[in-house]
Simulated scan of single mutants.
Amino acid sequence: MPIKIPATLPAYDVLTREGVMVLDEELAARQDIRPLRIALLNLMPKKIQTENQFARLIGATPLQIELSLLRMSDHKTRNTAAAHMASFYRPFEDVGDEKFDGLIITGAPIEHLAFEDVDYWDELTRVMDWTQTNVHSTFGVCWGGMAMINHFYGVKKHMLDHKAFGCFRHRNLAPSSPYLRGFSDECVMPVSRWTEIRQAEVDAVPTLRTLLGSAEVGPCLIEDPAHRALYVFNHFEYDSDTLKQEYDRDVADGTPINVPGNYYPGDNPAQQPLNRWRSHAHLLYGNWINEIYQTTPFDMSLIGKD
Rank of each mutant, 00 (worst) to 15 (best):
Leu57Asp: 04
Arg37Val: 04
Phe88Cys: 00
Leu63Tyr: 14
Ser301Val: 02
Ala55Met: 11
Ala55Trp: 04
Ile105Phe: 01
Thr296Lys: 05
Val188Arg: 07
Ala29Pro: 13
Leu208Cys: 06
Phe54Trp: 01
Asn262Arg: 12
Cys220Pro: 05
Cys220Gly: 14
Asp161Gln: 10
Val20Asn: 11
Asp119Gln: 10
His112Ile: 09
Phe115Met: 06
Glu291Asp: 08
Glu93Thr: 14
Glu186Phe: 14
Val22Pro: 05
Ala229Asp: 07
Lys305Asp: 15
Ser87Val: 04
Glu93Ala: 14
His136Ser: 06
Gly102Phe: 06
Ala200Gly: 08
Gly59Ala: 04
Thr16Ser: 13
Ser177Thr: 00
Leu274Val: 15
Arg181Cys: 10
Gly304Asn: 06
Leu221Ile: 05
Tyr120Cys: 02
Tyr293Leu: 11
Ala7Asp: 12
Arg278Gln: 15
Thr242Leu: 11
Asp97Glu: 12
Leu15Lys: 02
Met159Thr: 11
Ala114Ile: 08
Asn290Val: 12
Val202Phe: 03
Pro225Trp: 00
Phe168Cys: 06
Leu243Val: 08
Gln294Cys: 15
Arg276Asp: 10
Asp306Ile: 06
Phe233Thr: 06
Gly254Cys: 08
Glu123Gly: 02
Met85His: 04
Phe183Trp: 04
Glu26Asp: 15
Gln272Gly: 08
Met72Pro: 06
Arg228His: 15
Thr8Ile: 11
Thr242Gly: 09
Thr125Asp: 05
Trp194Gly: 08
Ala29His: 07
Thr195His: 09
Tyr285His: 06
Ile33Arg: 02
Tyr293Phe: 11
Glu25Tyr: 08
Met128Gln: 10
Ala83Thr: 15
Pro109Thr: 00
Ser279Met: 01
Arg169His: 12
Pro260Ser: 02
Ile149Cys: 12
Ala29Glu: 14
Ser176Phe: 00
Ser240Thr: 13
Ala28Pro: 15
Leu208Ser: 04
Pro35Cys: 07
Ala7His: 09
His170Thr: 04
His151Glu: 05
Ala82Cys: 09
His136Arg: 00
Asp24Arg: 03
Val232Ile: 15
Leu15Val: 04
Arg276Gln: 14
Thr80Phe: 01
Ala174Trp: 00
Ala108Tyr: 04
Ala114Phe: 09
Asn275Gly: 12
Ala281Ile: 07
Leu274Glu: 15
Gly261Lys: 03
Gly140Val: 03
Asn134Pro: 08
Asn150Ala: 07
Met72Lys: 02
Gly145Thr: 09
Tyr12Trp: 07
Ile33Tyr: 03
Met148Ala: 13
Ser214Thr: 04
Tyr12Met: 05
Glu116Asp: 13
